[in-house]
């Protein structure tokens, strides 16, 4: 099954789910209308994959398995979100920056590259601190650290 057909059926299903989630008071008039639109569009996209007339582009084959490479950073996002409240905004920003750089750096690890990465992360964190806390006076929640 190609991705377009999958997208079409996925959207059809989404439309049905969203429609059933909407309550029946007047406030849900708009959401119900949109859910119908989503379902219909899904159906048309799915149908078009059989006729090859309506949908101009051939299926975007996706980038294959490239998305597997982004799994570590998705894990970083989840950990980052947790660390923000536990350790504080700036310490977790430093850690997130450093870990992303570390995970994806092309150069091999050495004393020199490691200290360079730590230094850049620290400089970036200080710059962020200067921009948001000092210049813009944004109040960030504080955790155990800063």
């Amino acid at each position: 099954m190609n991705t377009d057909r999958l997208t079409g059926f996925g959207a059809l299903l989404l439309g049905i789910v969203l429609y059933s989630l909407a309550g029946d008071s007047e406030a849900y008039l708009f959401p119900r209308f949109i859910a119908v639109a989503i379902g219909l569009l899904g159906a048309v996209i799915a149908a078009a994959t059989f006729s090859r007339v309506l949908l101009p582009t051939a299926s975007t084959s996706g980038a294959g398995r490239a998305w597997l490479k982004s799994l570590p950073v998705l894990a970083v996002f989840i950990a980052y979100r947790w660390a923000m409240e536990t350790f504080g905004f700036y310490s977790s920003a430093f850690a997130a920056f450093l870990i992303i750089v570390w995970l994806y750096a092309p150069e091999p690890l050495s004393y020199r590259t490691a200290s360079k990465r730590i230094a850049i992360s620290a400089v970036f964190t200080v710059a962020i601190f200067a921009l948001f806390s000092l210049l813009l006076r944004v109040q960030t929640p504080r955790g155990m650290l800063l």
């Binding site: 996002f77 980052y80 409240e85 850049i120």
Partner: peptide, 30 residues
């Protein structure tokens, strides 16, 4: 690329938070 990605991630988190001082916005953003 890896430095740019790290920087944009952190900026996105701070930017989303600063709009209304809300952690919920950060979660929604991610």
């Amino acid at each position: 690329a890896h430095y740019m990605a790290a920087a944009v991630t952190v900026l996105a988190v701070f930017g989303a938070y600063s709009v209304q001082n809300s952690l919920s916005d950060v979660i929604v953003m991610l």
